[in-house]
Design a protein around this nucleic acid. Structure first.
Length: 269
DNA sequence: AGTACGTCCTGATCGC
DNA sequence: TGCGATCAGGACGTAC
């Protein structure tokens, strides 16, 4: 599922295929509920003629800065992916929307489960809710993470999934980070020691960095059409499979209705 | 405010 | 072998 590494991979892909400087000429929306702002008519009428000037990311949101000062915001949801292909090239399955460009190509928004969303906003706050720490920023340190977790009694796994606490983690990398830090997912956020918070910060950064490096290699190897997703975590996501670190069978529980995998041998309560 | 849960979706997988 | 039931989860609305 698209989490920070997948969205950042999409951002780098859009940079590398030369989206910057291109003008949108038409928006074809195949599932109207995907457009969150403005209404469908204004979105479709508003996009043509706009030039992409910047390609940024905040958490799991892709931010395409336009020459009008507006931003085209894309969220890939659970199953979303982005491709830029010549219009004449056969489309992959499950393309829900296409945004045509002035150079004969089109941006294809793939989204089998239709959980992805698009916004065209003059003010970013209309699309992007309050975001927490950006884990790949230089300033991301154990003190900030500790402050974000202070006074929180929810399970640490649930807190890692809250975008207002830390931006960009999803179910898979949250499990991966806790595994690397050897922290049980049901530990209360406020119960972590400073040492554990520091370890968790390292686990988060490591999980994301390793995944991103793998995506960078895949883009080079697969140019111009690299794979959309890679399995970049080390936890066996199947109960009973041996932990790669200590051999203990992995355990599966549910936290906030999310499948959560951890090793009861090296992630103690 | 903090916490928890149902809802939206459909391809993949499971079980009889 | 086939087909219906179940599972998967990011973000948001709602409830306590």
């Amino acid at each position: 599922m698209p989490e920070l590494p997948e969205v950042e991979n999409a951002r780098r892909y859009l940079m590398e295929i030369g989206l910057a400087g291109r003008t949108f000429t038409m928006a074809n929306i195949g599932w109207s509920k995907s457009v969150r702002y403005p209404d469908l008519e204004d979105f479709v009428l508003g996009l043509p003629g706009r030039i992409v000037e910047a390609i940024n990311r905040r958490g799991k949101y892709l931010l395409l800065g336009l020459n009008t000062g507006e931003t085209l915001v894309l969220h890939l949801g659970m199953t979303g992916g982005i491709r830029v292909h010549p219009k004449t090239q056969p489309a992959p399955s499950m393309v829900r929307h296409t945004l045509e460009l002035d150079d004969g190509r089109e941006l294809r928004f793939i989204d089998p489960r239709k959980f992805g969303h698009l916004w065209l906003v003059d003010d970013l706050q209309k699309a992007v809710p309050e975001m927490g720490l950006e884990p790949l920023d230089r300033g991301f340190g154990p003190e900030l993470l500790a402050r974000a977790l202070a006074g929180r009694g929810a399970p640490i796994k649930a807190l890692l999934l809250e975008q207002s606490v830390i931006a960009g983690l999803g179910n898979l990398y949250a499990d991966e980070a806790l595994y690397l830090a050897r922290i049980h997912p049901e530990r209360r956020g406020s119960s972590l020691t400073p040492e554990e918070v520091a370890g968790l910060k390292d686990g988060i950064v490591r999980a994301l960095t390793v995944a991103l490096a793998q995506y960078d290699r895949s883009r080079q190897a697969g140019w111009p059409d690299p794979p959309l997703g890679l399995a970049t975590w080390t936890i066996p996501r199947k109960a009973g499979e041996p932990c790669v670190r200590c051999g203990t069978p992995m355990e599966s529980i549910r936290i906030r209705a999310r499948g959560t995998y951890f090793c009861p041998g090296c992630q103690m309560l």
